[in-house]
Amino acid sequence: MRRMPVNEPMIRISDVWKEYNHDGTDMPALRGTHVEIWTGDIVALFGKSGSGKSTLFNLIAGLDRPTRGRIEVGGQDLESLGEKGRTTLRRVRLGFIFQFFNLLPTLTAFENVFLSLELADKADPKVARATLGEVGLEGKEHRYPHELSGGEQQRVAIARAIVKRPSIILADEPTGNLDTATGNQILDLLTTRCRDAGTTLIMATHTPLTCGYANRILRMVDGIIVEETSCGELAH
């Protein structure tokens, strides 16, 4: 992938529409969305359930394709990359964190993290172990997901996302399945690691808890993104 010029956004979404056909009727999830996200941004993307946050994430990750519009990641049009290119994007430049952790149940914590490195052709067990240590899971490398608490599982998911030093991390409701205290720990860990590495982080969320960790706040309303300045406005 080509090197990013500093004056170009990491992610540019231009007039993107995504429509789903349900029983013959087109239902738009995104309606002409525009947004630019810069390198190093820590973005909190608010929106109610069904507002289109996950749809947007899937489009950015190249898992889905827009009905119309253009998405550029790292200066490259995703459409022109093709399926192979989009897969490579996810392997090398993108990390994904899910609400329900989505760890592979048959792999240990170490193997879940090492998987990420293996896919990115950076297979180095030491790096995987070190990253698990960074997220506070030293000594638990050989445990399976069902042997870990929710918070520990999400730490593994974070380790899996950050181990390959991606340019972008997409976190879809990273604390949605955690209690407040654990959620705060996770957000703190995630945002600190991203800031330190200069990784662009977008967190989809519906809790104002995330506000304090972001330097940009976006709100998704009926498929359109609106920039907000503070968490207070989210209450309205």
């Binding site: 898992l63 592979l104 896919l119 899996r160």
Partner: peptide, 9 residues
Amino acid sequence: GILRSLGAR
């Protein structure tokens, strides 16, 4: 789905 989202071919 998880593996595809992580970049598995």
